[in-house]
Write a protein that binds this DNA or RNA. Sequence first.
RNA 1: GCCCCGGUAGUAUAGCCCGGCCAAGUAUGCGGGCCUUUCGAGCCCGUGACCCGGGUUCAAAUCCCGGCCGGGGCACCA
Length: 556
Amino acid sequence: MVEYVNSLSIDEQKRILQERWPELLEERRVEVRKDIESLPPLPGAENLDTIVLRFAPNPDFALTLGNARPAILNYAYKLKYEALGKRTKFILRFEDTDPKIKKPMIEPFDAYELIRLDLRWLGIAWDEEHIQSERLRAGIYYDVARTLLERGQAYVCTCSEEEWRKRVREAPPDSRKPCPCRDRSPEDNLELFDKMLSGELDEGQAVVRVKTELSHPDPSVIDWVALRIVNPYKNPHPRLVKLYGESEATKYWVWPTYNFAVAVDDYLMGITHILRAQEHYVNTIKQSYIYRYMGWRQPEVIHFGRLIVEGLTLSKSKLRRLNLRPDDPRLPTLAGLRERGILPETIWEVMLQVGTKPSDAKLTLDNIYSINRRLLEPRANRYMAVIDPVEAVITGVDRDSIRVEIPYHPSFPERGKRELILKTHGGVLRVFISRRDLELLEKNKIVRLMEFANIEVLQISQELVIAKIHSYDLQIARSLKIPIIQWVPRDDNVKVIVERPDLTDLQEEELLKEYGLGEPGIRETRGGEYLQLLRYGFVKVLDKSNNEVKMRYIHS
RNA sequence: GCCCCGGUAGUAUAGCCCGGCCAAGUAUGCGGGCCUUUCGAGCCCGUGACCCGGGUUCAAAUCCCGGCCGGGGCACCA
């Protein structure tokens, strides 16, 4: 039965579940839907008939847990307004306009593809996809830049970075001297811009600046840079090289900065609402100049706080520097969490719970695990395994062969049972128990071997336990209030290796592993299946070979 | 240093814009009970918060001022 269910795709499983036990799925969906419904309304949404939202990652690495916040929140609002009968659109836009510092990642992993995968895993479906490096080729940013230059709202600045810093950034507000380039005529500016485009000017020799108030209190806002030169021979754009070859990639010398590209694209794509982290606050101010000059209507922007998970680094650049696979189970990337056994629904629940508050949200891994545990528990069948096995010899068994039936999950009797055949030799049965239960045996003297019998401990050492059958009835165990422990037959078991990735210590070269033995039923499990190893924790099955099953520990 | 933004129980949030229905809701955690062949889940009961000070007002979590604390930004990165 389990094998049959597992042989089906997730969608098929869902469909069957839907037909036969709709309440199981319904419950979850209703819960998420309720969370989405209770999201506070977006400002001005009631006056619009179409709500357009976007998620705009830089494809320099796989998505982290931190990126899931804007991705899910923006998408959740799409779903919210869709449910309210509005027309909606959700756009995925790759912001890859920096071939130099935050270079897009194509090798050894294609971050564009990684991100699409992460989003699909989260159940996010986008209506449109755009890539800024492609839009650059289409001349979109250059056109807007020319318009601003023509109107005198932007200018080509040929000052060096140091010059600019001294003149404007470090000067007290009242003695700021505008740079002489500011007064250049539109004709001269356009001519210089063409020189930038053609490669006649090199990196650092010219930038396009947007005119702002010189008195703005934040010096970074003043005449901020909209486009700059990146020498394509020194810093070719990896995506353009891969797709169109060197000769095409080297044509593009001028790249828009984030703020310019975002303002242009948000307008052209008709974005109505932007939910993003508060680190973008100043960017919103910078971008507002473009909207004003171009006479565009500005989208509503909501800034939310940062997501902090105690003990984890969510910074993409830091994670990238570790040189691990993006889906390394120790990484707080979505891919890593997926490998670890964190469910996408868990991520959703966390993000909806955290919401759009402007202050930081500090979570602990335990917070996340408790949600995941709740969602995983009904899906994970239960098996017995003993870590660090110790042999127990049980005497006084009055039968030659014993059949024990164990349900896959007590809450779901329809999943059936598996059986364990125990052979005895002259009234003696040999099993393995977990080393960490020795203490328990010492304290209690009588314990119950789960689903089997109550035993009385006669002798106990680090290597061997000798016990005799006390009784079989569960009711007796109850009335004696003795502990119930898991066990594995000595003559029929499977080797179990459990990887325990530590998310908080990435320095460690080797993954921590635990070794043990599992009941024979574990052989039937499939790679990717979630199990609950009784009194141990939830694990994900990785792969099986011979009589060995590799697993990854998820949480208790 | 300068410029923003915030501060509701252990944690995460609702309420704040538009003051009264808030002796503050929800989730999780914690304590207890029921149920249950692990743990959990479920059900029931309990626990626990408006950063501080002043002001406005008949009335303040909500508006105003000051302080304290926390976060973010200050790139030819995104």
